[in-house]
């Protein structure tokens, strides 16, 4: 379980995240929605312990991320929005490196790498340097690296950016299969993705949690019965 309690993050006078509270249980696929600069990435960075909150806490299966960082992070697979790959490494070297720093036992490492390569169809590029890959392949390498240790929590920031339509379909399929016993947090601007994948939507605007509901409910909040309109109306209403 993830419990986010009174979470705040200030940058100078600006409140990037303002008193956010929610809890997530296994089996949930949650979509973090919000306009640019709403605080989604800051929120995800605090959940992953990359930045410390100004106040409040994040607990991962009962452990505080600030106090038991390593135990918490061993259960998280995180794909940040912007390039976090080592361009000088080959895909195989990078995946092996990810497996080793996550302490995957040697006997399982190759099996896990092979599995991740199969899921994201990276067979043709395993020996290539990451810098020579297309944007879509880079994204797939990132996703493959995040699931290597079979984490209970998957946090993905704009995961389908750069993927072609075929890969998007496969990604959705993967999320559906993977989410059965896991917690998945996806930050995205693509509403079709929210409708197709999420069980729950957390809408953030100006750092505040403004809606915590299901995509279906969000869709029917306004007479237009459209999730895009709902998003537009809610985020502008708050402003």
């Amino acid at each position: 379980m993830i419990v986010v309690k009174n979470l705040c993050k200030n940058y100078g006078n600006k409140k990037a995240v303002d008193n956010v509270n929610f809890g997530l249980s296994k089996g949930e696929v949650v979509s973090l929605l919000g306009p640019n600069g709403a605080g989604k990435t800051t929120l995800m960075r605090m959940i992953t312990g990359y930045i410390s909150p100004t106040s409040g806490s994040v607990s991962i299966f009962g452990k505080d991320i600030g106090e038991q960082r390593i135990e918490c992070l061993s259960q998280i697979g995180y794909v940040p929005e912007n390039g976090f790959l080592y361009f000088d490494m080959s895909v195989m070297d990078f995946l092996k490196f990810c497996g080793e720093i996550r302490n995957i036992p040697k006997q399982n490492l190759w099996q896990n790498i092979k599995h991740a390569i199969e899921i994201f169809e990276l067979e043709d590029v395993v020996e290539q340097k990451i810098e020579n890959l297309s944007k879509g392949y880079k994204r797939r390498v990132g996703l493959a690296s995040a699931i290597l240790h079979n984490p209970d929590i998957l946090i993905l920031d704009e995961p389908t950016e750069g993927l072609d339509p075929n890969q998007k379909v496969k990604f959705r399929e993967f999320i559906r299969n993977y989410s059965k016993e896991k917690i998945i947090i996806i930050s995205t601007h693509i509403m079709e993705e929210v409708e197709a994948l999420a069980d729950r939507v957390i809408l953030i605007n100006s750092g505040k949690l403004v809606k915590d509901t299901s995509p279906e409910e969000l869709k029917h909040l306004f007479p237009e019965n459209d999730i895009k309109t709902a998003f537009y109306k809610i985020t502008n209403e708050v402003k």
Partner: peptide, 10 residues
């Protein structure tokens, strides 16, 4: 941006 990757590893 790879620091974000490193600092979110166990």
């Amino acid at each position: 941006g790879t620091i974000e990757f490193l600092l979110t590893q166990p």
